[in-house]
Design a protein around this nucleic acid. Structure first.
Lengths: 153, 153
DNA sequence: TGACATTGGTCAGAGGCTCTGACTAATTTG
DNA sequence: CAAATTAGTCAGAGCCTCTGACCAATGTCA
């Protein structure tokens, strides 16, 4: 459903989806490897996708679920694990007694620091490969695209 | 681990990984929805990620696994489902009696046609938003990035 | 105010995905 | 030819994700 068209064979240009996905996955792999090497090996990719979306002042479960595109049951399940592993804690939401805010714990910020370092390194490598100008154009185009592809923008 | 940095608060520029992921996911969602609407609702996202990587002349299980970044056991499990659903068939590899080629069936090419249509449509929308020039630059930069991020390139 | 709909979240259960480990068969290497 | 490698399968366990049903707090509106 992607590249090198059906049985007919004429190789067209590569699907933009694949083009986006490849560097994304490469970056994610690098971050994960570095995190594991730094000792943050007690969470799974699924948990990370939730953890990543917790804001600095805490985020509601429902919002986490929506952003991660999973059901709130699934998000709750993952937050349970993260809580047990010490990455987050749940605190009452002062503005709504039904809700609780999922807040990052110290351990999460420490992991984030490692992750941010790797991201910066990879971005540097990319900038070296593309040249500063094309790297800037790339980020600029992607940022613009966000306007029509990110329901949360 | 991504945006709006830790407890310190200073909002830096958005992580390039997120920037790549957002449009990727938006595109994938569109393709999936269209496929389901066209009646191709009997396969899962995990199966699709394998199906997508089957070449026009068939691909070995081991290669599918490597490209999809799953174990060969997982790939085998998914191909089993796809085979039952009629999307693929396994044929002996004439060049190696241990191996079998996973080949797309008619149903897979039909689905691919639907998917390609949606991708083309979405790419058109993106080009309209960005302008032809920036769209070309985007694809060009991503293609270049592939050289250092795609182990299969 | 008081009924009703909405929203935040949990519990229970089922099914799907993915991994590790162990194994068979064919191929390649020395 | 013996040993190492490679393609693939089987079995079992654990994680992830969903649907459905439910409770409690909040919002809406006559």
């Amino acid at each position: 459903m992607t590249a090198d068209g059906g049985p007919d064979g004429a190789e067209p240009e590569t699907n933009t989806g694949v083009l986006l996905f490849l560097p994304y996955r490469a970056l994610e792999n690098r971050v994960f490897a570095a995190l594991a090497e730094a000792g943050f090996d007690d969470f799974t990719p699924a948990q990370a996708r939730v953890l990543q979306r917790i804001g600095p002042h805490g985020t509601r479960l429902t919002d986490l679920a929506e952003q991660a595109q999973v059901t709130k049951q699934t998000a709750g399940f993952l937050v349970d694990q993260l809580e047990k592993a010490g990455y987050v804690r749940r605190v009452p939401d002062p503005t709504d007694r039904r809700a609780r805010l999922v807040c990052g714990a110290e351990k999460a910020w420490a992991a984030k620091e490692v992750a941010d370092g790797v991201v910066a390194q990879v971005e540097k490598e990319w900038a070296e490969h593309l040249g500063k100008r094309r790297m800037r154009q790339l980020r600029e185009a992607l940022t613009s695209l966000r306007e029509i592809t990110d329901p949360w923008a």
